[in-house]
Design a binder for these strands. Structure first.
Length: 111
RNA sequence: UAAGUAAACCAUAUGAUCGCGAAUUAUUUAAUUUGAGGAAAGUCCGAGCACUAUAGAGCAGGAUGCCGGAUAACAUCCGGUGAAGGUGACUUCAAGGAAAGUGCAACAGAAAAUAAACCGCCAUAUUUAAUAUGGUAAGGCUGAAACGGUGCGGUAAGAGCGCACCAGCAUUUAGGUAACUAAAUGGCUUUGUAAACCCCAUCCAGUGCAAGACCAAAUACAAUAGUAAAAGACAGUUGCUCGCUGUUAUUGGUGGUAGGUCGCUUGAAUUUAUUGGUGACAAUAAAUCUAGACAGAUGAUCAUUUAAACAGAACUCGGCUUACAGGUUUACUUCUUGA
RNA sequence: GGAGACGUACUCAAGAGGUCAUAAGAGGUCGCACUCGAAAUGCGAUAGGUCCGUCAGGAUACGAGAGUUCGAAUCUCUCCGUCUCCG
């Protein structure tokens, strides 16, 4: 069960004050919150694709990934993942690799 | 067999493991059930539903447009009529009015809508190859379009001037609910454009669930009642005019933003059968409940020979339009090709 | 989800049925002057998309495709794209 970002204020908070890091496929923003658990958000803009089906599929795949990985992540953060057009048409395995790369690079996994 | 025409339908399957939305049950994390489309899309029409003082008067404005029917309604559908296309099955059509009026018709051409007369043709006169006057519109280039067409008669030359056939117009009769069709008679002929203004007939208040209703702390805000001030400027109300309403200060109580609940899915519903109708569709009976989120649920992995098109609900229906891999069924046509 | 607006040279744009848009105009581009050099400024000039070509010209082009009309950038319809507003 993932807790998601709900309000416009939460999103704006991450956008303005959060740390930002990206690769070719995604941009990751994150910031500490006052809670013990993580909150997650996914943004897929219309610039990625005009088709709602394709955007929905990307969002679902990322959510699937996050729900499996959430246990290993450092707790007490708001995460926001923005999708870039490059990630369109890639397989699920490629997306997983790319996302793993992001989180590893910033040392957000608990060892 | 081949080529084609029309109509209807299916269209990300099945199983296993993990995960998500909703409902129900037990009860606080378990079980069971259920969970995107034919276009959910575009938002192009028509409605339901909700709110707004749709008060009212006038002028604008918009939509539809052969006829009859269906429907809650429609720019939709069905059956006819007419025109165009195709050998044919069949397909396509914003298809009222141009003798109510106005506008426009570039260039070319003698002339572009009141008809007119450049080159011609003919007659007469003067005088020797031209001019003047009159008649005429058969022939001529142009153009998208030239004031009926073809033939014969006729004539100085010609002309619906006369006749025959054809086209168009009007009237009458017959058939049809009607659009219209057929026949007869008549005078002798009226260009095109209304997806130009317009005329005629019928219809139309606006805003869209981010509508709106209820609960409700603080601050902001709104509007209401009383009191005081102000009297012609501003704002609102339907695009405009008239008309109508409000404005500033202070006091009282009220509403109300963030948030929550509802609106939200039982409906012009779906399926089956019967009856009526050429048909769209209607009536009757029985059975069924079939997504309801709010940063917004359908995904991942493996197997099945391969898993693939266009594409994802957000108040709900009826249509239209556009996108679409592959496949199934039914009815029908044939100039031509082969058997 | 709902409501609108706009698509014309490289850019911003006029044109709103009629002699191919000589594609009006402006920016831009090029040259000269000024300057140590540049910018700004002043003066002057060119070409205007794509394809074919016998180098005379022809065809096609106003987001795309149909229709009305003798004739559409302009009128009508259907798509495509871009932008704005509504909590």
């Amino acid at each position: 069960m993932i807790e998601t970002l709900k309000n416009k204020q939460d999103f704006n908070n991450v956008y303005k004050n959060g740390k930002m890091f990206g690769n070719r496929d995604f941009t990751l923003r994150y910031i500490k919150n006052e809670k013990s658990t993580n909150r997650l958000g996914v943004v897929v803009s219309k610039k990625v694709s005009k088709k709602a089906v394709k955007r929905n599929k990307l969002r679902r795949q990322i959510k699937e990934y996050l729900s499996t990985i959430n246990v290993k992540l450092a707790q007490g953060y708001d995460y926001l993942i923005t999708v870039k057009p490059n990630s369109l048409g890639q397989s699920y395995q490629d997306l997983v690799k790319s996302l793993d790369h992001l989180f590893k690079k910033k040392g957000l996994f608990i060892n």
